[in-house]
Design a protein around this nucleic acid. Sequence first.
DNA 1: GCAATTGATTGACTGAGTCAATTAAATTCA
DNA 2: TGAATTTAATTGACTCAGTCAATCAATTGC
Lengths: 305, 305
Amino acid sequence: MPDPALINSARDFNRFYTNFLGVLNKAYLNTPFTLTDARVLFEVGSRGRVSAVALAKDLQLDPAYLSRILKRFRSDSLIETKADPTDLRSQVITVTDEGGRQFEELGRRSNAQLAERFQRLSDAEQRHVVSAMNTIRARLDPEVKSAPAIIRAHRPGDIGWIIQSQSKAYTEEYGWDMRFEGLVAEVAGRFLTNFDAAKECCWMAESGGINIGSVLIADGGDGIAKLRLLYVDKAARGLGLGRTLVDECIHFAEAKGYRQISLWTNDILHAARAIYIGRGFRLVSEERHRMFGPEENGQTWVLDI
Amino acid sequence: MPDPALINSARDFNRFYTNFLGVLNKAYLNTPFTLTDARVLFEVGSRGRVSAVALAKDLQLDPAYLSRILKRFRSDSLIETKADPTDLRSQVITVTDEGGRQFEELGRRSNAQLAERFQRLSDAEQRHVVSAMNTIRARLDPEVKSAPAIIRAHRPGDIGWIIQSQSKAYTEEYGWDMRFEGLVAEVAGRFLTNFDAAKECCWMAESGGINIGSVLIADGGDGIAKLRLLYVDKAARGLGLGRTLVDECIHFAEAKGYRQISLWTNDILHAARAIYIGRGFRLVSEERHRMFGPEENGQTWVLDI
DNA sequence: GCAATTGATTGACTGAGTCAATTAAATTCA
DNA sequence: TGAATTTAATTGACTCAGTCAATCAATTGC
């Protein structure tokens, strides 16, 4: 269940944006068109050739209603329709020259309205607003398929993200207390302050500019690489991302001449354990502990390379 | 003239969001109400007592139309109206118990719809979306009444947020390198692992479910309270939040019987320094250092209490 | 104290949007 | 292959959201 405060903010935003869009006025942008007319004309004008079904589906319009709108557009010679040769039931809709002109005029007015509203913002603010819009859309529009995950080196703020995400997730899922967050922060902090680029690395998985996973290799001395803070965000689990991150670590450890990778985990983290087993790690020790509240089974795994 | 590419993205977003809002369906949220009905009921329900003019103005409704809606609401006993004693032409509108119930039901459904859409997102994504909404609104809504900031105790993940935000901000603004993030993480981590609720505390400032600031008091021993990790997010600066957070610390230190508050900062952080000076802190030592890359002037300030 | 303004309501429309039924083409599957 | 089912488009028939002008009553301005 999402945080009610978040939902509330979102509702506030929706109320504001309903107003902002000016959806409620009958005459859209001072044109002879209604909002629905405009949406239809826009869709036809920008896609070139569409069928009525596709239009009805995308714009969520009643087919009967759409049919009437198209009929009117036809009699105003804004569009032309002819039967689709591959399916004679279906009509292919195209804009006429006049329709194209109207479509462009609509675009100009819409642009002008937005430009007027953007004008009072600085350039930086404008970009900020648009990137926020992209953020929202990428998350809420099912059509926009999530951007592919990429693995990259860490940047400022990433370590904080790791701490935040892990502690939040494991608190929620396993009831661990804040000592866990403290441990993660200390481990991550030491990693950063003593960072040795020649022997150590931190990888972040991100998708569409948003972090979704992480792992790091720290030098444990004595030819041992410590694999730490493997984490994959809830929303991105089941895609093999954890495996990819671990493989990244193994390759790195090989390349840097480590003789062994060692890691500490808790057996309750089944997905992670499955990855380690799959990559040939072997369990060398385990102990019951209550470091984070509930009793857990801490385990040390190693992989010789 | 704004960048056409930005305008275009914004238009894309608007088209998407028009759909997303579901403004276009007659039966709003499967209730017997239209969107306009719902907006009216919402406004009346949440404001308590309104006049019809005010309602018409805020919702941009035709008075005739509004009058009819109110008449219907009255005959369905959702609202009651009586003449305003100070202006007998004007009607004061209030919701009845039944109206209140309907108003709440509407709220529940609206929440449920949003919750359902948010559910498929990770917690981080939800926060990201809402903070993007706030960004847009803060820029485009002329009456920015941003949600009031509240100060609360920290929760799991907050410490990670502190580390992430601080390191990101100071890297961008002053070019500090990742050793800063490392230091913050270690400090924060130690605070959590040795946390003593009787002598220590961490406060988070949040607005609309989004973290916007933080500060903490750690026990430095010897009657000295260490004030640490004071931070206010860029978007929330200039509102006196930093001062409020510091005051919170001072009260806490007094209540817990500390004799002195001590803190370490860098003189480049002007806003913070101004707060310390304003609250009577005095500078006791300073030293040039290159702990985070660029040369900075580290300072220790104390306040006797 | 009279003219102009303002809040609320009503009459009289219009046309956006809905629902069910119909036709014709395409698909499914025994 | 052909009967049953599904799908694309249209039409009939209707409703009711939303508009515009006119009216009435209370208030304000000069």
